[in-house]
Design a protein around this nucleic acid. Sequence first.
DNA 1: AATAAAATTAGCGAATAACACCAATCTTCT
DNA 2: AGAAGATTGGTGTTATTCGCTAATTTTATT
Lengths: 160, 160
Amino acid sequence: MPSHKFDRFDRKLLEALQTDGRVPNTDLAEGIGLSPSPCSRRVRLLEESGVIKGYSAILDQEKVGLGLTVFVDIKVERHQEKEAEAFCEAVSVLPEVVMAHLVSGESDFLLQVVVPDLRAYKEFLTNTLLKLPGVRDIRSNFAIQTVKPQSPLPLIHLPG
Amino acid sequence: MPSHKFDRFDRKLLEALQTDGRVPNTDLAEGIGLSPSPCSRRVRLLEESGVIKGYSAILDQEKVGLGLTVFVDIKVERHQEKEAEAFCEAVSVLPEVVMAHLVSGESDFLLQVVVPDLRAYKEFLTNTLLKLPGVRDIRSNFAIQTVKPQSPLPLIHLPG
DNA sequence: AATAAAATTAGCGAATAACACCAATCTTCT
DNA sequence: AGAAGATTGGTGTTATTCGCTAATTTTATT
């Protein structure tokens, strides 16, 4: 299923870049046991093929004033193609929604919502979420404690 | 609650670095309307104060062969301090668990698990999750479609 | 209370150092 | 023999540091 053949260098490289997306190419090369030129070529190829989608700064949620994370279960009206798509589109655009999936199980959609506090969530829920097209039921599960923050993907099955 | 006073420069800066964590300082500076030196100083301060926790490459989950995302609801035995901590510790260490929260609502914990396929999940569930200390009940919700991938934090309430 | 001096803060611009990138050639491993 | 890495050298870009200046706040003194 991987649309790319990876070897041990790619694997090490991707792991290193997930851990520190800003590591200089020279350091990265040394870290994975390669000289700078082929290392930088590999990175470029991985970027061009879309394996590396981009780079991002990881922020401390608390310290930027976003103290509340809510996992929102949403049930929608029996999905008609169009309605479902409209719902997805509407959800994708909301900045407070930092992740959204169509899921199996009790609910239809699972959203991860990040806001400053409970007051802000109340407002977001009533003014935005409840007004989304086709919503039938919403259940809010509040994050009480972060056991493990968003972490690198497990590249365990790759070679190397 | 923000442990830092942000102005409009910081806000623009954090937004830019969330969107492209590898943008050169000169470009970043121009983008936020500042000259390179104060821009790089601000970035450094934000890093040192922990507001910026780090940088990471964003990978294409499919293309690295991780086609399956599962949201796992876990109920545990009536938490004793020790047991709860043991559970959290055990969960944090698992590479397949890319996010974990203690939550309100039906279940106690919500885990985001990433694996290559259903076969791998079955193995992970039976060999690892079900053997975690104090687990009472596990419900697996499979991601059928990614509506919105993990996205930048909404810095809407910051000044500027 | 008002003014002046001092300290703090933050931005700018120039110089130096680090790094990335590219091309060409040589080497190694299969 | 071919594919991929190492090495070298040159070039342009980028980062970092320094001293300087402007604006604001604080403190001291009259």
